[in-house]
Design a protein around this nucleic acid. Structure first.
Length: 584
DNA sequence: GCCGTTTTCGGCCCGACTGTTTTCAGTCG
């Protein structure tokens, strides 16, 4: 089996972790070098398998030494240095490092003084009181470690959770904090603000000159199970289901700097700080300031901070140090961040269900009324087709629904109602109904709802066959993944994107927080190649029509401009495009 | 281990909090 970039990136991360133990310092330069190399490999556009050592070493973040290691893995499927460190620090030891409160120094101390090398040994050392006798540790530390072990299966450091479990909690806490008189502004930051699929913990910032009320609110909140810590400007809680929430109180004049700092990513921030240093400044969560005098340069808003650093403001979704820095750098010729799609640019929703489908929760009339209320110029009713046995609508049902939708159209002169369906892509790529019946729909989305575990070449064929069908306008939730619970189908992205362009079929960005599908990788590559996308809610009830903002953030994360999103187009252009797909 | 208009050595991001310390080390983000 050839070595994949992901595989190599994982091994380099492991090397970083093991080196951290070896050197006893999480900030060791060697540790950081391995982490940088892992990230460099992750974001590489070519396969490491086909690259020579010198080609690898030419990549930023990969030097001669790491290039040799990567080549060794490609050729021999092993890395000597890694094998050596794995033998020296068995998995039990590394597991201890994952316990919050244990870093490399404590780990070494445990091993050398108490011969503790795994979780069981640590439990025993706490129980017997031997741990509390170690130099630098004490009763309180022993107690904290005991608690940490108990909630470890829930803890953020060991467990990232799907965004759908986190976003609603964060939004509620932010709203509650913002209602306080003492709080000027509250917002969540971190990977949630960057809109990653999975989230470790929640970072909330409040702008205030009086931190106490905000901290009282969080530590006493109904959602709080346990207060982990509280200082003058920072406190942390764990919710009942184990999510850690950190709150930081920020002075208003520092809010922008803090927002930059806590939004990250870590890699993005490091580059910003390097830019600050080059200018004789230093960037912290308080401000951008002169390194010598401490005189403030910027800090109140994110815009000020980026501007002072000679950069355009970077949308949080792009802050991963994966090319956005150069695009924002006003010192670089042709620098230009992509224009990214915004919620206000969408003119229609193209994947929606009603009680006509067994799993719909709002009536067609209510869905249409709500869409009209959003000011949409077009709206597609796409209930499930008949092959979805539990849910789908048969031919007679579809014809009746169409009749009722046409009647409804008269009530909404300013919004074009499209009668469509969410078709099911069968195991051979075929879809529901026959060609003549399909031709009666205005707009069809085709999605995979079954047979998730088939070989990639078979899945590729399924998708390609569906895209070739002239009645299929878009492919819904391309991978079929459910974040955190179902991995989704594997397929050949090259082939699928080529076919999307050839047939003019759109790729859907599904706004359901469970899905966020197409994935960022697909969007990024599709954006580069000029593929047409649609951003749809897949709403099953009125309330879910608002989910479109999630789909938009997913699209932005993939760097997608509005021009490549078909439902930003005006009605005439959109209808002409549908027509063209049909005849292609 | 990586990198380079202060280059091949000598730098490499920064501060809060905790618990243990009588001035700071370790961990975290």
């Amino acid at each position: 089996m050839p070595a994949t970039n992901d595989e190599v990136a994982r091994l380099l991360s492991e090397l970083a972790t093991l080196t951290e133990i070896e050197e006893g310092d999480p900030n060791s330069f060697r540790v950081r070098a391995y982490q940088n190399a892992a990230r460099a490999v992750e974001t590489l556009s070519q396969d490491v398998g086909g690259m020579s050592a010198s080609q690898l070493a030419a990549q930023r973040g990969i030097g001669k030494s790491t290039a040799t290691k990567i080549r060794q893995f490609v050729d021999e499927r092993k890395i000597d240095k890694l094998e050596e460190l794995r033998a020296k620090y068995p998995p039990g030891q590394r597991e201890l490092l994952r316990i919050p409160g244990i870093g490399p120094k404590t780990l070494t101390l445990l091993k050398e003084v108490l011969r503790v090398e795994d979780l069981a040994g640590l439990r025993e050392a706490i129980q017997s009181g031997r741990l509390a006798e170690l130099p630098g540790l004490g009763e309180k530390t022993a107690e904290n470690l005991k608690d940490a072990i108990e909630r470890m299966h829930l803890q953020s450091k060991t467990h990232r959770r799907p965004i759908r479990e986190v976003l609603p909690v964060a939004e509620q806490l932010v709203a509650d904090l913002e209602s306080l008189d003492a709080v000027e502004r509250a917002t969540y930051a971190g990977s949630l603000r960057r809109f990653r699929d999975t989230i470790g913990d929640v970072d909330i910032l409040v702008s205030t000159t009086d931190p106490a009320p905000a901290m009282d609110l969080l530590t006493g909140h109904d959602l709080a199970h346990d207060v982990i810590g509280r200082g003058p400007t920072k406190c942390s809680i764990v919710t009942h289901d184990g999510l850690q929430v950190d709150l930081r109180a920020i002075a208003p004049e520092s809010f922008g700097a803090a927002l930059v700092y806590f939004t990250g990513s870590k890699a993005h921030n490091i580059v910003l700080r390097q830019r600050a240093i080059e200018r004789g400044w230093k960037l912290s969560e308080y401000d951008l300031a002169d390194a010598e005098t401490g005189g403030r340069v910027a800090g109140a808003t994110e815009d000020d901070v980026y501007d002072a650093l000679g950069m355009d403001w970077v949308t949080p979704e792009l802050r991963e140090d994966s090319g956005e820095i150069a695009l924002a750098d006003r010192g670089v010729d042709d620098h230009r961040l992509p224009e990214l799609v915004e919620v206000g640019q969408l003119r229609g929703d193209l994947h929606d269900h009603s009680t006509w489908s067994g799993d719909g929760r709002s009536t067609m009339e209510d869905m249409v009324a709500a869409a009209a209320g959003s000011g949409y110029a077009y709206f597609a009713m796409t209930d499930h087709a008949e092959d979805l046995r539990i849910n789908g609508i048969n031919r007679a049902g579809m014809l009746e629904q169409r009749k009722q939708l046409r009647a409804l159209q008269e009530k909404y002169p300013d919004m074009r109602l499209l009668h469509g369906s969410e078709l099911n892509i069968g195991i051979d790529g075929s879809v529901d109904y026959d060609a003549d019946f399909l031709a009666g729909f205005d707009w069809c989305v085709a999605s995979v709802h079954s047979h998730f575990r088939r070989p990639p070449d078979q899945q590729t064929t399924r998708l390609v066959t569906a895209m070739r069908n002239p009645s299929v306008h878009a492919i819904g939730h391309l991978s079929g993944r459910k974040i955190g619970t179902r991995p989704g189908i594997e397929f050949d992205l090259d082939v699928v994107l080529d076919m999307a362009i050839e047939t003019g079929t759109a790729i859907e960005i599904n706004s359901d927080l469970n899905r966020l599908d197409a994935t960022v990788e697909v969007i990024r590559e599709g954006a580069r190649r000029g593929v047409t996308f649609v951003i749809s809610t897949d709403a099953h009830m009125v309330k879910e029509l608002d989910n479109v903002r999630n789909g938009v953030r997913q699209a932005r994360r993939g760097g997608l401009p509005p021009e490549q999103v078909a439902n930003t187009w005006d009605l005439d252009r959109f209808l002409a495009w549908i027509q063209q797909q049909r005849s292609a």
